[in-house]
């Protein structure tokens, strides 16, 4: 009886077997890391908007407060988008004939809305309320990043459930004093951990991780 397979087959078969055993965990690893990667979540990617609006110009350069345009944020679930009228308040005079602002002008003239592309889009099965977060000391930049540095707006971190839970479990790491939450560049003075603990006590922050807290 001749040899059917060469000696190298032994190594090949053993490696294939180990590979097959390791394939499951490897696939899990692949899926879990792909699922949270920016390739899937599109974190850090600025979608193409009808108007190339620059937060860097309006917030970083003009010092507009977040609430100048997103004025529902303190009382509503969604922060709200400014109407074309809000834009036209200034742009009726400043850059009043700039070509990129054409969608704003036509929306204003035609009483339509500018169709912005949602940058921070939570899934529909999550209930999120901006007002409670900003009132309890969670700053805009904590989730949306330094928009005052963004020429085009992007969502800097993937808004995965793990990311939500990180803060829901450890609010002391992320809480700011309520009067600072709309600041872009606030830095805690002294021990941030001690401050966080104090704020958690002061604002009575809970650590809500029940399913139905967000998935209502």
């Amino acid at each position: 009886m001749p040899q059917i397979l060469p000696p190298s087959a032994n190594l090949a078969v053993r490696l294939a077997l180990v590979g097959a055993l390791g394939a499951g965990p490897a696939l899990l690893w692949l899926f879990s890391s792909l699922g949270g990667s920016s390739w899937v979540t599109r974190a850090g990617e600025a979608p193409v908007q009808p108007v190339p609006f620059s937060h860097k110009l309006h917030v970083g350069g003009l010092g507009l407060d977040c609430r100048h345009c997103h004025w529902w944020v303190e009382t509503g679930a969604v922060a709200g988008m400014p109407s074309a009228k809000t834009c036209m308040h200034c742009h009726a005079q400043v850059f009043s004939d700039a070509a990129p602002l054409e969608p704003v002008r036509s929306a204003f003239d035609g009483d339509r809305s500018i169709e912005w592309v949602r940058v921070a889009d939570l899934p529909d099965f999550v209930s999120f309320d901006h007002s409670i977060h900003v009132r309890k000391g969670f700053a805009c930049v904590t989730c949306h990043g330094r928009v005052d540095l963004m020429p085009l707006t992007e969502q800097p971190v993937a808004m995965t459930m793990r990311w939500c839970l990180d803060c829901h479990r450890n609010p002391e790491r992320y809480a700011w004093p309520v009067e600072q939450v709309f600041r872009m560049d606030w830095q805690p003075e002294g021990d941030p951990v001690a401050l966080g603990r104090r704020l958690v006590r002061e604002y009575g922050l809970r650590r809500p991780t029940d399913c139905s807290f967000c998935h209502r």
Partner: peptide, 13 residues
């Protein structure tokens, strides 16, 4: 189906 497996997923669950 692999959501049933215990692995560190992006949902943190």
């Amino acid at each position: 189906f692999f959501w049933l497996l215990p692995y560190p997923n992006s949902m943190g669950t």
